[in-house]
């Protein structure tokens, strides 16, 4: 009998193996890795087209070994619709932040969800506009200070945060809508399982799917990466509860 080393975890093959431009501790990298792992595990690398947003993930296409396009701000779901319609057998996902998806791109995401056509959306909710320096987003919590809500967000001055997952789950179009968190190993495992269902909803031709990922922005939150994870648990999750909000029959 001899001893051999068995691989417990190694880098996904569809990951382009570049060092990302993300700040230390930013959970974009975690969400990226889950996408790459699922593309590998589900054998999708040859038929995947990623549609990237304007925001911190604008260069996302650099980090994967599958085809990608870079959309205009907020328009990823429209662009993905054009791509999917021309090649329905391909796997098409958008990757969008909260400013991109829930502010400037709200019309496109709502109508993509309402059409219900099988595209998949990975939605990163980190409560601010990271790329532009930490301005208030549609998901910024009440009381949260940002560079454009310097005294903290108030309903009177800024209105209320938008719960995208719950809102879209009211539509008849979507096949699968969930909110997950990337704050801990256990939640990252759950996030991957939700993303797998979302991918499956498309692969099996069932319909539109979206996974909202509670994420961190240590740089603009002015917290350490570890403190940022704690903030997600203590402050963000109470307003943005985790869970599956829409699961139609056949999604697994």
């Amino acid at each position: 009998m001899a001893e051999q080393m068995k691989v417990i975890y190694e880098r996904p093959r569809s990951w382009a193996n570049k060092v990302t431009h993300y700040c230390p501790g930013c959970t974009h990298g975690v969400a990226h890795r889950l996408v790459a792992e699922l593309v590998d595990e589900m054998g999708l690398v040859d038929k995947t087209i990623g549609v990237w947003p304007v925001g911190c993930a604008v260069l996302g296409y650099d980090y994967f070994n599958f085809d990608s396009v870079e959309a205009a701000h907020g328009r990823a779901p429209a662009m993905a619709t054009g791509i999917k319609v021309t090649n329905p057998d391909n796997f098409v996902f958008t990757y969008q932040g909260d400013g991109d998806l829930a502010s400037i791109g709200m019309a496109e995401i709502v109508h993509a969800a309402a059409r219900g056509w099988p595209i998949t959306v990975i939605f990163i909710n980190n409560g601010n506009y990271g790329m532009t320096g930490g301005q208030m987003a549609p998901t910024t919590l009440l009381g949260q200070k940002t560079t454009t809500s310097p005294l903290g967000r108030t309903p009177q001055a800024n209105g209320f945060p938008i719960r995208v997952a719950e809102m879209l789950a009211q539509l008849d179009g979507p096949a699968y809508i969930a909110r997950v968190s990337l704050d801990s190993p256990v939640n990252i495992r759950k996030a991957k399982s939700a993303m797998r269902k979302a991918f499956n909803a498309q692969v099996r031709g069932i319909g539109f799917s979206l996974v909202e990922c509670l994420s961190t922005c240590p740089t603009n939150w002015k917290l350490t990466p570890v403190e940022s994870m704690e903030r997600v648990r203590k402050e963000v999750m109470p307003y943005f509860p985790l869970g599956e909000f829409k699961v139609v029959e056949g999604v697994l």
Partner: peptide
């Protein structure tokens, strides 16, 4: 072929953009 009524002209042209990336006549 496929006809899609978009939610706005903004969405229309970005759907065109997506289809154009696939190299079809759109």
């Amino acid at each position: 072929g496929r006809f899609v009524q978009a939610e706005s002209e903004v969405a229309s042209i970005n759907m065109v953009y997506g289809a154009a990336c696939a190299g079809v006549r759109v």
